[in-house]
Design a protein around this nucleic acid. Structure first.
Lengths: 229, 229
DNA sequence: GTCTATATAATGATAGAC
DNA sequence: GTCTATCATTATATAGAC
């Protein structure tokens, strides 16, 4: 386990093997310009020729797969194994780390792209959130849910999705300054979300009660398909 | 104003001008395969040659622009001018209309893509939601907010974003059956969202009160940037 | 290991025949 | 109005020299 100030994967470029330098250049490119970035572009950023990429990785798909792996590895490493954080805490912490910038943007892009990293990232967040909420419920700070899994999935997808929609709505946000970008994406929603989480939205319970009466089986476990596939 | 069962823009393909048929084929293609769909593909679906697209539209960008316009026109037409619906009602209604399928998927893709239709669509929903919530507050069914604009923006982006994230998480969902797709995307979240909107999440008010004391100015109007740009 | 040069495929743009 | 044929560009994949 590394200190947060200088994780294992941050070192001077000279220390890296050519293969790793190529992979990191690809991660940066994919983060900045999306997965449509060409191999020529990646090679140029790494200061080598495009032929070398094929030599080391065989093709773009393979290169992307290795980037996916590395990015998810970094995510797991930074997050820490047993550390259960709320999604807000996690995102807030991650965005503070300068070195994590490209990794985080890579993940966001992968979520939008439907890539494997994105999926894994979201599912990971959901599991963590369910655990975190479970603890919070036991601690008495968060209300119990009739469907803990569904609630965790709902909280994560709406928080993340909200950021992504805001992002597409605000092309002027500079993704290279990740900390600032996250601040802009989440700052505007601090008050509305706190308000909603504390006071709810509806004045009375009729909508919820109506729904609960309408469904056939006891409202203990989720009756709906939660896992994607 | 047309009846919902058969809007103005639904007719047998023979009734359409070649230009309109081409445009509609493009909308279908963009919806099904994304905006990377080639002009050859579009021409093939329309049963004409690729040269004809250039003849009528000049180029792909222009064609996309006309598709954007048409899709947004259909959206406005279906929605109705003065009709204020909740986001949930609106999405539920739209998904029922068979003919609206490609249009709806086109809009979703446009949101993900950051396209003009997507932006306009979201901003439209936000304005409608704010109006709707204003009425609901006056009617006594929804609680007052310290930041009505921010709340509307938060509700729309999180509801929509949640669907989009679920969509990327579930590639097996068949987008051609829009009604079913929406059902799968929203059904799992009915209970968690109703629960949250009715009962909130936190047991006590400490988080909210802490935030309210921390910010300098009176919590009447939003102190943050809400409009994207 | 690294480079240069080339093959191949796809796409959007264009020209000109009918 | 509509089609066919071709061009220019760009991307990846590949081969072979050093």
């Amino acid at each position: 386990m590394q200190s947060a100030a200088s994780p294992q994967w941050v070192r001077s470029p000279d220390d890296l093997t050519a293969r790793a330098r190529l992979r990191d250049a690809a991660i940066d490119c994919f983060a900045q310009r999306g997965f449509a970035a060409s191999v020529r572009e990646i090679a140029q950023r790494a200061g080598v020729s495009q032929g070398l990429i094929r030599h080391h990785f065989g093709g773009k798909d393979n290169l992307r797969a290795e980037c996916d792996e590395e990015v998810f590895r970094r995510f797991r490493e930074i997050k820490g194994e047993g550390l259960a954080m709320s999604p807000g805490q996690a995102i807030g912490m991650l965005s503070q780390l300068e070195e994590f910038g490209p990794t985080f943007v890579y993940i966001l892009r992968s979520v939008l792209d439907g890539g494997v990293v994105g999926r894994a990232f979201v599912e990971h967040l959901i599991v963590d959130t369910e655990l975190f909420m479970e603890q919070a419920v036991r601690a008495g700070t968060v209300r119990e849910s009739r469907d803990p899994s569904g609630r965790a999935r709902y909280l994560v997808t709406s928080a993340l999705g909200s950021m992504l929609v805001q992002l597409t709505l605000s092309p002027e946000i500079d993704l290279s300054d990740v900390g600032n970008a996250i601040q802009r994406l989440t700052g505007a929603f601090a008050l509305p979300s706190l308000e909603l989480f504390t006071e709810g939205l509806f004045v009375d319970r009729s909508m919820l009660d109506q729904y609960l009466m309408q469904i056939p089986d006891p409202p203990a476990a989720g009756r709906d398909i939660h896992p994607p596939a």
